[in-house]
Amino acid sequence: MSSETHVVEHGAEPAFRQHHFVDAEQQFSTSKIGMWLFLATEILMFGGLFVGYGLMQGVYPEAWVAGHHHLDRIMGAINTVFLLCSSFTMVMAVHASSTNQKSKTILNLLFTLAFAAGFLVIKYFEYSHKFHDGLLPGRYFAYHGGGPPQQAMFFGFYFVMTGLHGFHVVVGMALITWITIRASRGEFSSAYYTPVDLVGLYWHLVDLIWIYLFPLLYLVS
């Protein structure tokens, strides 16, 4: 950031600039730092889960293998594709909003929402299947098909990890809905599209975490 870039801003008083920032550029870069820091905490939180999961897999490899046979790889793979596509449409939405293409922004955001919804629908089917078979965490594990007892722990991890991720998907959908409404009101332009950009970053993280979750849970070796 050089001092020349924001000289332009002086005199103009954009409505979105908060009083404690000197100019829009400063506000934008500050928001980005904040978002990256937040994403770092998210990664560390899931990281802790991954470590616990990995350590326990080391102790009970058979239970992990047996447990993952109950997961539907096809559904998992479809969901991976859904999230990858949604990330792509999100990139398109951010690009569109930064180049003043309002309708394209909205369209791409709606696509993203649709993919996210599709992800949740599939997840719903997966969950109800597990519930039906009694493949539940811990003391609620009631599967009668045999296998190592520590499958109960595997499904504990499965539900905590996918549940926490699913919660992030729901939060992401709420955020995307919110920026879609704002976009339809014409609040974003090449001068100000920070919310779209930040929600985009968040959505990519949600996608990225799934990219790790999918092989960890569905493709145990």
């Binding site: 326990m56 102790v59 965490p137 811990g138 520590q150 109960a152 504990g156 991890f157 905590v160």
Partner: peptide, 17 residues
């Protein structure tokens, strides 16, 4: 989770550590 579902990650009775 351990208290509500008895997942067992930290409970030696269920194989945890």
């Amino acid at each position: 989770m351990e208290r509500t579902f008895g997942v067992g990650v930290f409970d030696p009775k269920l194989g945890g550590d």
